[in-house]
Design a protein around this nucleic acid. Structure first.
Lengths: 138, 138
DNA sequence: CGAAACTGACTACATTTGTAAACATGAGCA
DNA sequence: TGCTCATGTTTACAAATGTAGTCAGTTTCG
């Protein structure tokens, strides 16, 4: 491994990277367990998604390039680890989704879901319980 | 207006069309009030978004083409009206968002928001009130 | 009536995204 | 040592998306 395997350092250390839909699948696997080799990820997604190895590898490269993954050389391959926290990405997505569709507020979303996606009695109970535990933040 | 202004009929009557982020801005304006002329929409978005007329018109055309808008000729121009309901689009977006990020469930989202975007006491109260009114759907 | 203003249609183009083939190189096995 | 396999890199390409210029009819105002 002389001049190969010399991917440019992630542009931005960690911050908030935008994860696309397809990339999300890969991140989930790594958030769930890491590090992993590309091989592992490839086989998981060949089955689960029907993706070709090349596809998965491309996505791994893109994620690495944009600083969403860290790689550690191991022999002639890499071990991949998330470089961003799941919760940060989730926060990002949530924020942008709420802003775009519900003016940034949570209530309208809950109201919408309640109306259109039907919540079970159990769901409602759980949500209430959830709200009980929350400590107001301001 | 002889052979001009003959846009092909919307492929799918109404169903669920995918509205892109930019298009969303236009739809919002029309959901809020319709019909409107392109002129109206253009000026609103020139200010609000800094978009050029051509941009807005392109988006109107795309939306019409994909069946998200209905047009009614009026002189040499059109009156634009939504052909899809806002709530249907919101439902679509919400569904896909929840699926992608939260496994389709609402609770994890609420939990996440509670933790990361801080809810005020008022927010929590409102949410509780909201839950009170909801009639379980199964 | 003629020119200006307006309107939708057509064309354009860079970027992003999904999807993948081809390639080169290093590693392990025969 | 030579060959095959695994692995990352390069290149490709279509569709979607954001953003907009230009053009050709229409309408309207002087």
């Amino acid at each position: 491994m002389s001049k190969k395997h010399v991917q440019k350092p992630a542009p931005k250390p960690q911050a908030s990277v935008a994860i696309t839909e397809a990339e999300w699948d890969i991140m989930e696997l790594l958030w769930e367990k890491s590090p992993r080799t590309s091989q592992e990820i490839v086989s998981l997604l060949e089955e689960g998604r029907g993706w070709k190895r090349a596809t998965v590898v491309t996505l791994l490269a893109r994620l690495t390039a944009k600083g969403a993954l860290n790689t550690e050389p191991q022999g002639n391959r890499f071990l991949y680890t998330p470089a961003v926290e799941r919760s940060a990405c989730v926060a990002e997505e949530t924020r942008s989704f709420l802003d775009r569709i519900f003016g940034g507020a949570l209530q309208p979303l809950v109201a919408h879901v309640a109306e259109h996606h039907s919540l079970t009695k159990k769901d409602i109970a759980e949500l209430k319980a959830l709200l009980e535990q929350i400590k107001p933040n301001s």
